[in-house]
Write a protein that binds this DNA or RNA. Sequence first.
DNA 1: TTCTTTTGGTAACGCGCGTTACTTCGAACG
DNA 2: CGTTCGAAGTAACGCGCGTTACCAAAAGAA
Lengths: 377, 377
Amino acid sequence: MAKSTHAAASAPAAHAAAARPATSAPASTGAPAAQRGVTMADVAKAAGVSRTAVSFVLSNRENASISEETRTRILETVQVLGYRPNAGARALASQRSDWYGIVTEIVTAPFAVDIIKGAQDQAWLHRRFLLIAPSDQADATGPNQGMEDAAVEKLLEQRVEGLLYAATYHRAVHVPKSANEVPTVLINCFDADGKLPSIVPDERAGGRVAVERLLQAGHSRIGVINLDPDIPAAVGRLEGCREALAAAGLELDPELVVSGHATADGGYEAACEILDKYQAGAGRPTALFCLNDRMAMGAYDAIKERGLAIPQDIAVIGFDNQELIAAYLRPKLTTVALPFEEMGALGVQTLASLTAGQPITAHQQMVDCPLLERYSV
Amino acid sequence: MAKSTHAAASAPAAHAAAARPATSAPASTGAPAAQRGVTMADVAKAAGVSRTAVSFVLSNRENASISEETRTRILETVQVLGYRPNAGARALASQRSDWYGIVTEIVTAPFAVDIIKGAQDQAWLHRRFLLIAPSDQADATGPNQGMEDAAVEKLLEQRVEGLLYAATYHRAVHVPKSANEVPTVLINCFDADGKLPSIVPDERAGGRVAVERLLQAGHSRIGVINLDPDIPAAVGRLEGCREALAAAGLELDPELVVSGHATADGGYEAACEILDKYQAGAGRPTALFCLNDRMAMGAYDAIKERGLAIPQDIAVIGFDNQELIAAYLRPKLTTVALPFEEMGALGVQTLASLTAGQPITAHQQMVDCPLLERYSV
DNA sequence: TTCTTTTGGTAACGCGCGTTACTTCGAACG
DNA sequence: CGTTCGAAGTAACGCGCGTTACCAAAAGAA
């Protein structure tokens, strides 16, 4: 709780009470410094025109008839006075807020940030603001439904034009009811009731591309370090794995599939089990497909412990592209990336279509998981 | 760019054109479903009172005289109609927006998310909304000043009551001029002009606590894998290191300080240099203080390559607490954490004081960097 | 009984802006 | 010379709400 905050030795002056007084300095020098609270009426008065004229000029109205002369005069006045439009007032008058809301679990999120970034960038391009509301809260006792409802409620109070609902791992979710009042798109998750449009990673294609890469490198006996077999990610990735093998006329040996806890330790143990089951050349796999990068990290240790080299003796391929792991393991990990940024961006695009009343391409959109080649295959 | 979006096989129904029509259903059944666009006036009419009365009740006015009877009647009507206050209109009328803005580099940020989370949580507790604006943008050519100005400008258009400016690594920054129009607090950086209040990690105390831990474990000859010696983080941490040694009557041997690139590879090379400079027992350090976790990751490899055990032969301590590295290395890395969340939270608290006109405790507040004990010492 | 105070409200203004309907004026037209 | 018409601009309303000033009736006080 960061109690020990003390004055810094390095900062010479101690502007302690730096709070700005809220008093308005009515008419300062004619400096171009933006004065607080300059309104459209002020601009109008200073330019000697009506407020309406200013509004017309600033909103670039097509069929407004304003002479080029007054037009430039108004724009100059805007500059001089440092006028800045009031987004809230504009929203009130025009009945459109230019805001989207996103509710997501920030706390437990190594990935949420990527979704947010993708969405944020795209929203910025669409000249929209993205309001972020946490669906989990520090002082709440776990991620409770109450928080989510409150988050959606707060967002709706801000009159967001659309809602994004993002999960940090691919799964089915229940979205608060009030989300129905506004166009809503799910990201990295799907509606358990099947009503809302969603955007998810194409796990199956990802699994396929991973195993295809191993096959292409000449491996035919491939071990799989599996996640909890019930979650959508595991189902899809394993299915893709089977497809790739089948296309090469191979089958997945159930003996070579080991499920473990989705951690480095879990990966370590699973890798040990697979590696110790066979002798080299006598059925021992020459490649490991780890269904996430954390497990790949553990597998690395198991492999190195046995004096084996990556990728010469055993090739490893991961999933997720957890940057801080994959890019810093030695050798760097070849892995399949989860397209969080793209999903975030696509979410905003979909929302934009929806709010514009346009049809969307599909109820559930799947985004490719690209292979990231590094040095472990 | 996520081109291949195709209909999902798993989603049965194809609610393709799910766009909601914007037509208002004037008087639906008396269902309790929240009708879009219920206003305070609607509530007033339905409850048979004036709009003022509703406003008084909803804002819990102290000295308003509303009988308990009408009060409950109003509240019931609010429930029934599903009235939801319009935050924008409220902001306009009350001249306070309840919004803070934060501008930060999301792109290049393994850490920015933590700052945001801390700030977000705290803002939520203060019943404030946090608007996030990116200071770097996907299509921009690098982090340019133009983007930052635009970000601040956009935030001010939203009439944020205060501004947070966050960097992802501790450094001096230049803040856009217009930030002066509103209370502003810097997080994980400081104003090059020395005007704005800031919140930074106490690097020196962090360096001290790290080395104290090593000393306590019986190490007296400690190697240091340094960052670029010029950045504030390196200066502070090294200073703390010297202090701890001095307190134990020791001095820092310049021979044992090696600077490297702030990556795993840089750490690997630096560690190799230190380890190969001496024989075991003949001056070779028994512990390494790595000034960040990525370098510690490389150091691990150098140590293991030489057949040495962590922490039995060589103890390692890191800095930053980059979760995905520190918590998954084997053995798990003891490190000093950068208090991003705390800094974010403290930033909002400071902003709250500032906007309330209260004095703040110090121009620059330093937040402790706690030691995280794991298994590498 | 008359005057004052309290209780329980309401009318009306303004926040900053988008938007529609209207006015004025000079030029072209018949 | 009267009429029409476009150009240039303005008055005024309303978005949803906070807030101040005011009012009517009931309850005490003198």
